[in-house]
Computed example of a mutant assay.
Amino acid sequence: MTNARDPRIDFFRGLALIFIFWDHIPDNPFAQLTVRNFGFSDAAEIFVFLAGYAAVLAYGRVADRDGMLVACTRILRRVWVLYVVHIFVLTLLMGIVFVANNHVETRDMIQVMGLDYFVRNPQQALADQLLLRFKPNLTDPLPLYIMLLLALPLILPWLLRRPQLVIGLSVALYMMVPLFGWNLSAYEGGVWYFNPVAWQLLFVLGGVCAVRSQRPVDRVLRPLIRQPLFMTAAIYVALAGVVTLSWKWPELHEAIMPTWLKDALYPISKTDLAPLRLLHFLALAYCTAKLLPSGLAWLNSWPAQQACRMGRYSLEIFCLGVLLAPMADMANALGGDTWPIQASTALLGLGLMMLMAAGLEWNKRLGQSARVVVV
């Protein structure tokens, strides 16, 4: 695999992190601008797909350079780091929520964040936390990523050589969800909010795209408007956008959606990555890739550079966003949940995420400069 890195990957990872942060602040006005308002999928699909893309791109290069054993060892080491980070962030999150709940009178922060199970049964909750069975609100994506990355050493050799076979097996595993209801168990008889048996398909598809991006492609393409696949994807994205927007006006939704169609479409499960969500994301990703090819000048703009920087440090920025969301909710409650307060906390949180990404970038460059001096 080559060393070329598509800057769009970092940009959209950073954008997904912003959307995830805004979506997790209750009644945040900026949450009306995120991708979930314009289609069936949301930032979670972007995050998982690009996680698969970035992981296969990075560890595929290691496998080519140092061998598959070294690549798998580094994957497992990364899994351990993610596990430790998850436990640490969850501990900090619980501390923040418990402190916030002592100061907020308008709502129960413990219940909102899904920590009432810990209050009722702390010993079992701690055990379930270590087993990734207890995942309060906001913390679900990281355990999912841990499980997907843990399975990567099993599929990476085949993914690099026989991606069609891996896709076939991944689709077959995905079908086990609607056919047999497969999922991992969680606390108190529940299941994982992000079903790894279903979401692994999106992770695998991201990895396959990473493999294909490193291979020569035919540059002679027909005009964009004449591509049947693009037109089909664009129409589906547009129709999904109309349906999703109509949810904000129930009377309009009833008018444009006959009963038989609603019975066929709903529920659109996020837990099991319903086919409508999966197809919407794939169509959206395809249209975006065609309309925004790499190398455009917009990627050099200041906002795009900030998003790219956050995307390069996605783990750290995601964890910060998880901790900032309940703090923003607390500040909103203490400020009376007014629109100016809600907008200010959302923008302040975004500023802190950008500041942290800039600090991490500066620290990385400082380390590189120090190594050069030592040499």
Rank of each mutant, 00 (worst) to 15 (best):
M175F: 13
S294I: 06
R222Q: 14
R309Y: 06
W249G: 02
A172C: 07
D272T: 02
S185Y: 11
V204S: 00
K262W: 09
A198R: 07
Q227P: 02
V243I: 14
Q200H: 14
V211S: 00
T244R: 15
C287Q: 02
M175Y: 08
R219Q: 15
V191H: 13
D218T: 10
F203G: 00
L179A: 13
L299T: 10
R215Y: 02
G207T: 00
W260I: 13
Q305M: 14
V237Q: 04
V220T: 12
G189T: 06
R215D: 01
V242L: 11
I256N: 06
R212I: 03
L265P: 08
V243R: 03
K270H: 12
W298D: 01
A233H: 03
W182D: 07
P228A: 11
F281T: 07
Q305Y: 09
L173F: 08
I256P: 07
R226E: 14
W260Q: 10
A210R: 00
K290V: 08
M310R: 06
S170F: 06
G206V: 01
W249F: 12
L299G: 03
L278V: 09
Y286L: 12
I268F: 04
D272V: 03
Y286W: 15
W199K: 05
V191C: 04
A186W: 04
A234K: 05
G241L: 09
T244H: 10
Q214H: 14
Y236C: 08
A238T: 13
V242W: 05
E188A: 08
F230W: 13
L245R: 14
Q214G: 15
T271W: 01
V242Q: 01
L282G: 02
A238S: 10
R219S: 14
R309N: 06
L296G: 14
H253Y: 11
V243K: 00
G189R: 04
W192L: 11
G207S: 00
V242G: 03
L265A: 11
L252S: 09
T288K: 04
Y236T: 05
V217I: 11
G206H: 01
M257L: 11
P303K: 05
A264L: 15
W302K: 11
P216R: 07
M176Y: 07
V197I: 10
V217R: 15
F203T: 01
F281G: 05
I225K: 13
A172H: 02
V177C: 04
L173R: 01
E188Y: 00
W247L: 15
F203S: 00
L276C: 04
P267N: 06
M310A: 07
G181Y: 06
M310Y: 00
L299P: 03
L276H: 12
E188R: 02
V171R: 02
V211F: 00
A234T: 04
W298E: 05
I256Y: 10
L261P: 03
P178C: 09
A289Y: 10
L239A: 15
D218M: 09
A289Q: 10
M257H: 02
L276D: 06
F281R: 05
F281I: 05
L239N: 05
L229G: 12
R226W: 15
M175L: 15
G181N: 08
Y286I: 05
V243L: 14
Y266S: 05
L279D: 01
L201E: 01
F194T: 06
